[in-house]
C-alpha cells in the first residue's frame, strides 16, 4: 500500500496515532515497570530506594540451574527440529498434493491442541517408562513436538516461494546427485527460512510453560517453571529481576526475527 495515501494529516490521523500510542503504552508499561522493579532496592517504596543488582544476583543464586536447563533444552530442541523439520519441509514442498497438505495439517496439531492436553497424554503414555519421567529428555520431547511445526512452516514458506523444483533440475542437469543438490542448492537458498525457524524454535522453547509445567519434576525445572514459582512465592522484586533475565535472553532473537521479517519484505 502506498505510504501517505491520506496526504493531509487531519484529525483522524492524530486520533489514530494517539490510539496506537495508547495500545503501545498498554503493552510496554508493564514491561518497563517489571524491568525497573527488578533493579529497584524496594519496589514498595519506589525508585527513590535506589537501584541495585541485588535481586538479579539473588535470582542467579536461586535459579541459575533453570536458566542453564532451559538453554540446554532450547538448543537440543533446535538440533532436533533442524534434523527432523528441514527434511520434512523439503518433502512437503516437493509434493503439493492432497496427501502432503493432510500431513502438513496433522503436523500442525501439537500447536492447535492445548499443551496441557499433550502433556497429559505424554505422561499417561510414557510416564512409567524407565527413568524418562525424571529426565530432561521428557521435557525435550514435548518441546520438539510443540516447536517442530514452526520450523516446518518457516522453511516450507521459503521453499514454496522459490522455484525449488527448477533449481534442483538445473543442478541435476549438471550432474549433481541428490545429496549434492540438497546441500549445495536447496539448503543455501532456504537460509532465511531456516534462520527464522531456528530463532522461533529457540524463543518458544525457552518460554514454553503449558507443556513444561506438567512435564517437569523438581529436578528438571526450566526457566518459565522457575518464573511461575517465583511469582507465586517470592517478593515482587525477585520475580521482576527473573523476568528481566528472561527478557535479556529472548530479546536478541526477537530483534533478529524482526530484522529478518523486514529484510524479507523489502527484498524484490
Amino acid at each position: 500500500m502506498t505510504t501517505m495515501t491520506l496526504s493531509r494529516r487531519g484529525l483522524s490521523f492524530w486520533a489514530q496515532l494517539v490510539f496506537t500510542l495508547l495500545v503501545c503504552a498498554l503493552l510496554m508499561a508493564p514491561v518497563a515497570m517489571s524491568m525497573l522493579a527488578g533493579v529497584t532496592a524496594n519496589y514498595f517504596v519506589g525508585i527513590k530506594s535506589g537501584l541495585t543488582l541485588r535481586w538479579v544476583e539473588e535470582v542467579w543464586r536461586l535459579y541459575a540451574d533453570t536458566i542453564f536447563l532451559s538453554l540446554r533444552i532450547a538448543f537440543a530442541c533446535l538440533g532436533c527440529t533442524l534434523l527432523l523439520g528441514v527434511p520434512a519441509a523439503y518433502a512437503l514442498a516437493r509434493r503439493q498434493g492432497a496427501v502432503a497438505r493432510a500431513v502438513e495439517e496433522l503436523l500442525m496439531m501439537p500447536v492447535a491442541v492445548p499443551g496441557l492436553a499433550t502433556a497429559l497424554a505424554l505422561i499417561v503414555t510414557y510416564g512409567g517408562v524407565g527413568d524418562l519421567r525424571r529426565s530432561w529428555l521428557f521435557i525435550l520431547i514435548g518441546h520438539v513436538l510443540f516447536t517442530l511445526p514452526f520450523m516446518v512452516r518457516a522453511v516450507l514458506a521459503v521453499m514454496t516461494s522459490i522455484d525449488l523444483k527448477t533449481l534442483e533440475e538445473g543442478a541435476a542437469s549438471l550432474g549433481a546427485g541428490f545429496a549434492r543438490r540438497f546441500f549445495s542448492v536447496v539448503l543455501p537458498n532456504c537460509r532465511s527460512g531456516i534462520l527464522a525457524g531456528s530463532l522461533m524454535v529457540l524463543t518458544l522453547s525457552v518460554g514454553e510453560f503449558n507443556l513444561t509445567w506438567l512435564l517437569h519434576t523438581p529436578m528438571t525445572k526450566t526457566l518459565p517453571v522457575g518464573l511461575a514459582d517465583s511469582y507465586a512465592s517470592l517478593r515482587i522484586e525477585i520475580g521482576s529481576a527473573y523476568t528481566l533475565v528472561f527478557f535479556i535472553m529472548i530479546v536478541p532473537s526477537l530483534i533478529l526475527l524482526q530484522w529478518l521479517a523486514r529484510h524479507d519484505r523489502s527484498a524484490p
Binding site: 527448477t166 550432474g175 549445495s184
Partner: peptide
Amino acid sequence: LPIERRNVGMVFQSYALFPN
C-alpha cells in the same frame, strides 16, 4: 538413468541459476 547421470546440458525458461 536419472538426469544427473546422462551428461546433458540443459537451459530452462526460468534460467534456474543458483541465487546463492
